[in-house]
Amino acid sequence: MTEDDIIARLKENVIQGRKTQQDEGIDEKLSGTPGVVELTRLALEKRISLEEIINALTAGMRVVGEKYSSKEYFIPDMLASAEAVGEAMEILKPLLEAANVETKGKFAIATVHGDIHDIGKNIVAILLRGAGYEVNDLGTDVPTEKIIEFIKKESPDYLGLSALLTTTMTEMGVVIEALKDSGLRDRVKVLIGGAAVSDEYAQGIGADAYCVDGFQAIKVLDSFQQAKTS
């Protein structure tokens, strides 16, 4: 495989949402051929630059976004591609750090204490990882203390909280109060989501944003980034 081949295939496999060689993707012709993970490793072996690899991943993801907007692709397609890109970024992470390249930011996400719903939270995590964020998934039914501890230690830029129950959404307010009490509130932006909550609720508890879904979360985060740079 030439370098150009690797780059072209990387992009194509992002579009196909094929994380590994085993993934079926959409086009049956590709089955059994290397997926994004194998191609990323191969690209590094062949000493293709980090920039070129990331450009290929981003270009693939852009096509996926277009296909989704034009209704050719559905959410599962978007997720598969995002997952593939997320996995590639995981491989590139140590190299990016060594090269002092900044990621878009660290995002910690958790379903709050008392709540075990995680489908929505997982989708958001996959999408954000695919969009270039470094995502730490703390799991479900996460006690507030554990969240605070994590933030103290790892200093993520963002904290995402998910709650699907009216009985557990109050826990989000508890987390925000605890952040204040520990003097961490200014260090992290809090995004909340889940069927139980709303924009008004977010404002009420002092969260920075409410997001209906993962796509909105990407937009909101981008707007935060812009605000930061301007």
Binding site: K19, E24, G25, I26, P76, N122, A125
Partner: peptide, 15 residues
């Protein structure tokens, strides 16, 4: 897998 979602297996079926 961490996410425990079957999404990787539905895309050919979907089509």
């Amino acid at each position: 897998t961490p996410q425990k979602l079957y999404i990787g297996y539905i895309r050919q079926v979907m089509r």
